[in-house]
């Protein structure tokens, strides 16, 4: 047997050199600048989410979930959801106050727990008597309750901040790129293989250059996440615009639509459902990167999983993993429902 002969073709070295070149002197400052620009909103968002009272977040999540299920966007639903959210919020506040004032306040703690039970009772009551099955708002509140109860509230807020910033950057890159790609077949032919590469490359690979360019921390995590998550956003924006009915484009032309108006009045609105599906996928891909991103030092839920694996603490890993999954499910369902549109469009369940 002859082994594969060795060649002096060292692509790996070349890439190493390139990255080294990128990190030298002035370029280093450039990446520091980028890093600072990303860090600024990230830190503020994280601080803000952690500062927000738990009650407010639960309420906001419940309302978003109520709003996102179009065929249940009724006053009665709103009333039920608000009642549940109020019971949970008040209950959590009471328990929190009781714990702050040490053990002396057993009554408050007791009242708080009863309120939490009341929230469950409201949902159960409407189910048993009114035949109303608990839906997305209940799932969302239960999910956040679980995250809080297992002690991962702050970690979840950190993760939300990282995912939020990464998603925002990815969308800001994806939509314009998708638009120019839709406008030019040559650009499409050029960008497509890059997207394929981005999506098939094992996501670990993004960590190394990100690490070298931006050092340890949340910024390389965000950059690696953006690299991984941007592709579906670009793809679906491109697709959405290309699939707009040619007859409508022609009709728009017939009425004297200028190029910019074509984009904003016809193409983007008509492509919106597809673009929204793309944004949804961007968010899901970002969440899928949470654990991997935590390897370069992004704190949050990912760290829990990582520690769980590294230290063989199955329970910790499970809590972290389940929390990520819950966030993913809730965000997925809510963003799917948030598509603008109108009532009669018929919402498939």
């Amino acid at each position: 047997m002859i082994d594969f002969p060795s060649f002096d073709f060292q692509l790996d070295k070349l890439i190493d050199h390139f990255v080294k070149w990128l990190t030298a002197d002035w370029r280093f400052h450039f990446f520091r600048g980028v890093s600072a620009t990303i860090l600024w909103p990230l830190v503020r968002l994280e601080k803000f989410l952690q500062w927000l009272p738990v009650t407010v977040i639960i309420l906001a999540v419940a309302l978003l979930a109520w709003w996102s299920v179009r065929h249940k966007r009724t006053r009665k639903e709103l009333f039920i959801v608000l009642a549940e959210a109020a019971a949970i919020g008040l209950g959590l506040t009471l328990i929190g106050l009781a714990q702050e004032q040490s053990a002396s306040n057993g009554t408050w703690e007791w009242a708080g727990r009863s309120l939490l039970a009341a929230a469950v009772a409201i949902a159960g009551g409407f189910w048993a008597v009114g035949g109303r099955r608990p839906g997305l708002p209940e799932l969302a509140m239960a999910g956040f309750m679980f995250i809080g109860v297992v002690g991962l509230w702050d970690a979840a807020m950190t993760t939300l901040a990282v995912v939020g910033v990464a998603t925002t950057i990815a969308i800001m890159v994806a939509i314009p790129t998708g638009i120019v790609m839709a406008k030019s077949d040559r650009l499409q032919a050029g960008i497509r293989p890059i997207l394929d590469l981005l999506q098939t490359m094992p996501s670990f690979v993004y960590l190394v250059p990100a690490l070298m360019l931006f050092g340890l921390g949340k910024v390389p995590a965000i950059m690696a996440t953006v690299m991984y998550a941007v592709a579906p956003g670009i793809r679906l924006t491109n697709l959405g615009i290309r699939l707009v009915d040619k007859e409508l484009i022609e009709a728009a032309h017939a009425f004297g639509t200028a190029p910019r108006q074509m984009l904003f009045k016809v193409e983007l609105p008509l492509a919106l459902p597809t673009i929204m599906a793309g944004i949804n996928q961007v968010i899901m891909a970002s969440l899928a990167m949470v654990v991997i991103a935590s390897m370069v030092g992004a704190a949050g839920l990912g760290i829990e999983v990582l520690h769980g694996i590294a230290r063989l603490k199955v329970g910790q890993g499970f809590n972290g993993g389940l929390s990520i999954t819950l966030l993913a499910i809730i965000i997925d369902r809510v963003t799917r429902g948030l598509q603008p549109g109108r009532e009669s469009a018929g919402e498939p369940a």
């Binding site: 007859e247 409508l248 728009a252 017939a254 009425f255 004297g256 919106l272």
Partner: peptide, 21 residues
């Protein structure tokens, strides 16, 4: 051409060509 289409002509299509949104 855009001016012409905006002011002088109006077109009606077989499949209506109405904007669904």
């Amino acid at each position: 051409i855009i001016e012409l289409r905006r002011h002088k002509t109006g077109m009606v299509f077989q499949h209506y060509g109405l904007f669904p949104h």
